[in-house]
Simulated assay, not measured.
Amino acid sequence: MLIDSHCHLDYLDRNGVDLDEVVARAGRAGVGLMVTICTKVTEFPTILAIAERFPNVYCSVGIHPHEAESEPEVTAERLVELAQNPKVVGIGETGLDYFYEHSPREAQQKSFRAHIAAARETGLPLIVHTRDADEDTIGIMRDEYEKGAYPGLIHCFSSSAWLAREAVSMGFGISVSGIVTFKTAEALRDAVAEVAMDKLLVETDAPYLAPVPNRGKQNEPAFVVHTAERLADLKGVPLSELEERTTENFLSLFKKVNPSALAA
C-alpha cells in the first residue's frame, strides 16, 4: 500500500476531472490514502469538503509562498483554529520560492514563520515548499527550531543534498515526486540516494509533474506508483519494501491520520 503524501485534488476537480474516478483509480493502483494540499486559506473550505467526501483523503491548511501577498495575512492562531478539524493533518504548504517570486520575499518569510509556529503548537507536520531558496529556508527553519521543535517534511524535494541533510538533521522527512524519474534529474537522484529510508515519503504533486511513463499527462495519485518504483530501484530494495517503509514513515509523521483510513 502506498500513500500520496501531497496532491491537489481541488485542481483536478477544477480541471473537470471526476474525483470519484481519481480516487478509485488510485485504489486500484495500490494507493490507499491521499493528502490534498491547501495553497490558499481562502479556498480551505473547498479543500476540506473534498477531504470530508472520501474516507481515505485528508487535507492540510496553509498558504503557498506564491500567494503570501495576495492572500489575507494569516496568523498562527488562525491556522491552529482551522487545523482542529479531524480531517486536517498538516500545516502548509508554506515555504520560500525565489525562482518565481510571485510574492515579495519578506511576505513569504513572514508567512513561513507563522506556519512554523502553528506546526509547533499543533504538532502537525509542516509541509515545506522551497525553490531557489535553500539557505533562507534552512536559516528560518533553524532559527524557529531554536524556539521549540516541530515536525515536517520537504515536499517535492528538488534541492541540494545539503538541504536534505540539514532538514533531516532537524527530523524532517523528504518527500520524493515524479521528478526523480525524469531523464535530466541525475543530480536529484544522487541527493535522494543519500537520504535514509526512514525519512523518505512519496507524492505526486498532482496535477503537476507526472512521472515517466506518464510525462505530458495530467498527474493523479495513481501515478505515484511509478515514482515509488524508481525510488525502490534507486535505493536497491524491492518495491514492496519501499511501499512498507514510506507508508510507515508517513504514519509516523502524520500522526493525526487514522491508519484504518487506508483503503483495502
Rank of each mutant, 00 (worst) to 15 (best):
A117E: 15
K183F: 09
A185F: 04
D10Y: 01
G90R: 03
P259Q: 03
S175Q: 00
D233K: 12
V74N: 04
P86S: 05
R142E: 15
A210Q: 04
N258W: 07
T247R: 15
A196F: 00
K40E: 08
V202F: 08
E71H: 11
F254W: 10
E229V: 10
T39A: 10
K256V: 00
V168I: 14
D205H: 06
L48C: 07
E135R: 15
E73K: 13
A196V: 00
T204I: 07
L253D: 05
V192H: 02
F112L: 13
G139M: 04
H8L: 03
P211L: 07
A187K: 14
I174D: 04
M170F: 07
T181L: 10
E248Q: 15
F99D: 12
T227I: 03
H8V: 03
D13Y: 07
L209M: 06
E73L: 04
Q108C: 06
F254S: 11
L124C: 06
V89P: 08
Y11K: 10
R113T: 11
V74K: 10
A185G: 07
T42G: 02
S159T: 01
L200M: 11
P104W: 01
R142V: 11
T130P: 11
A83D: 12
A196Y: 00
I116Q: 09
A114F: 00
H66E: 12
E106I: 04
T94Q: 13
R78S: 12
A24F: 01
A83Y: 09
S260P: 01
V128P: 05
V202C: 05
A133W: 00
K256M: 01
E248I: 03
K255P: 01
I37P: 01
R245P: 00
S103D: 09
L200R: 13
E166F: 01
D136N: 13
V74Q: 13
T227C: 05
I3G: 07
I116E: 10
R113V: 15
K40D: 13
A164R: 03
Y100A: 06
M197G: 00
S252Q: 14
V22A: 05
K147R: 15
I138W: 02
P221G: 09
K256N: 06
V192M: 02
